[in-house]
Amino acid sequence: MNPDLTLPYEGESPSFASRPVWCGRGSTVIGAARIGDQAWLGDAAVIRADGQRVTLGDRFWLGHRSTVHIATFTHGTTCGDRVTVGRNSVLHACTIGADVVVEDDVVILDGSSIGDGAVIEAGATVFPRSDLAGGFAYAGSPAKAVRPITPGEAAERAERVRERSAEGLGADPEPPQDLDPDVFVARTARLRGRVGLGAGASVLFCCALEAEAGPIVVGADTNIQDNTVIRSRGEGVVIGRDTTIAHNVRIADSRIGARSLIGIGAVIAPGTLIADDVMVAAGATTDPGQILESGHLWGGRPARILGPLDAERRSMMLRIVESYCRHGREYRAAQEELAG
């Protein structure tokens, strides 16, 4: 079974091993990705190799609404054989050994290396450039070894992760119609209710923007990255212009300012107010009603000030916005060509 959507990137298309690959509804594979024998991709799973390669070994398992991505200029992502990844997890520009189990809601960040037979427990964040030895269980943020893995334990935990993924996410994606020509919405994204997208905005693969009550308003040139879920059940969500919402972020009714970045796997609680010019670190969470003041890097659970938003961080945030404006144009053209 093929993914719901495959697209080339810079002339390279995904390649699949000759033996069967099972792909769920809304699953998406982009660019220079190589997927081994007997892989399993859950509903709304995204593999995006747009700038570096993604190489996934035999019997790779990627749970529902999980994401594999790269760092455009520095790192690809490589996984050995028999790697199991749970639901709503992100492998980002990292190297994973064989027989590794990555449980639900995990974030593994750029330049990290995970040894054979390791288990990354649910909710953990592996910080950039971490080197985690095989044969141990890791937990927390940052992820740290908590104990050795007993014989057969990794295989048992992999089986439990797969059992939890037996049920899918439900309905197929329902992409919107009649979009502004400067906006990109991936074919596997879902927008429901009153959703407004500013010029140059992009909503990437398998995102879900659900305005159940108040509206969701996204500013110009803001990017919403793969598998992010934004849900309004009260006053609504407003996101300023030139802002990045990274992979697998969860956002409830809140306000997010301009020129900000919400990191991979962050959770923004109802009533949060994030000022202009704020960076929220990967895996961070906010408390309901929390106010994040301008000019700072915030991180932790709940988020606290970690340092100033210096010139280097601001420059990096601007480069991401510019890169995703370009991605939006490229992906819109590719989707239109695919549609014929």
Rank of each mutant, 00 (worst) to 15 (best):
V267N: 04
D242K: 05
G236Q: 00
R231W: 09
G198W: 08
G170P: 00
F136N: 15
L179G: 03
A133W: 11
P215C: 01
E167A: 03
T125V: 14
G170I: 02
C206L: 02
G152N: 07
I239P: 06
P176E: 08
E153L: 04
G219V: 08
A213Y: 04
D180S: 13
A137W: 04
N227I: 02
S254I: 04
A266S: 05
R162E: 13
E163F: 06
V267M: 10
R194W: 12
V126A: 07
I256M: 03
V161Q: 04
A143E: 01
T243V: 07
A199W: 11
E159R: 09
A133I: 05
V183E: 08
I216S: 00
G196N: 12
D182A: 13
I262D: 02
P175E: 02
A252E: 12
S232G: 07
A220L: 03
L179H: 07
C207M: 06
A154R: 07
R241C: 10
F205I: 13
R190P: 10
G236Y: 01
V126P: 11
F136A: 08
A258D: 11
P128M: 09
G135A: 03
R250T: 11
A189K: 05
R162W: 10
N248V: 04
S165Y: 01
A154V: 01
N223H: 06
F127T: 03
I224G: 01
F184E: 02
I264W: 09
V185N: 06
A133M: 01
D180Y: 09
I230P: 04
V146C: 08
E156P: 14
E174I: 15
G240Y: 00
V217G: 09
G240I: 00
A158D: 08
I149S: 06
I256R: 00
I230K: 12
I262H: 00
E159M: 11
R233T: 14
A137G: 04
A137Y: 05
A258H: 11
I149K: 13
L197I: 11
F127R: 02
P142D: 14
D178R: 07
F205R: 15
S202H: 09
D131S: 15
R194H: 14
R259V: 13
P181L: 11
R233A: 06
D172M: 07
G134V: 02
T244F: 04
R241W: 06
Q177A: 15
S165A: 09
R233L: 13
S254V: 12
A155F: 05
T222M: 10
D180L: 06
S165F: 03
P148K: 12
I262R: 00
Q177E: 14
F184R: 02
P148L: 08
V146F: 03
G198P: 07
V218C: 01
R164H: 09
C207E: 06
A186R: 01
A154W: 01
F205G: 11
E174S: 14
R259S: 10
E235A: 14
